[in-house]
């Protein structure tokens, strides 16, 4: 059952990656990377059990922390001024409407 769960998470990761590449806005990419990070945490924890080496959980904890740090860092810089001037990333949605 663990192996089935691992494969399912793997599929979910592939879907998240395709969202990260499709965009269309910057925030979609950040969101996809964030949810990919969550899934990676799960995948590593599951792999640890598949291989019978639960010390993998340390890596999972590091991921959870690093994921938090990098997303907050991204948003810290997206708050700075240069991101409002060229908001051309947001155009695709405007076109659709």
């Amino acid at each position: 059952m663990i192996i089935a769960a691992t494969l399912a998470i793997f599929c979910a990761m592939i879907l998240a990656i395709s969202r990260a590449f499709m965009g269309p806005t910057l925030y979609d990419r950040i969101l996809a990377v964030n949810s990919l990070g969550t899934k990676t945490v799960l995948l590593i924890a599951l792999l640890g059990f598949v291989m019978g080496r639960p010390e993998f959980l340390d890596i999972a904890i590091v991921y959870a922390l690093i994921n938090f740090i990098s997303v907050i860092a991204v948003l810290r810089y997206s708050d700075s001024n240069q991101f409002k001037e060229n908001s051309s990333e947001n155009e695709p949605i405007g076109k659709e409407r």
């Binding site: 059952m1 663990i2 089935a4 998470i9 599929c11 979910a12 990761m13 799960l42």
Partner: peptide, 22 residues
Amino acid sequence: CLLLGSFICVSGSIGLLRFPDF
């Protein structure tokens, strides 16, 4: 638990692809 969890994870990712906006 694992089965339900992985089903929810996959459907979450499908939602990530299917829903219309951010």
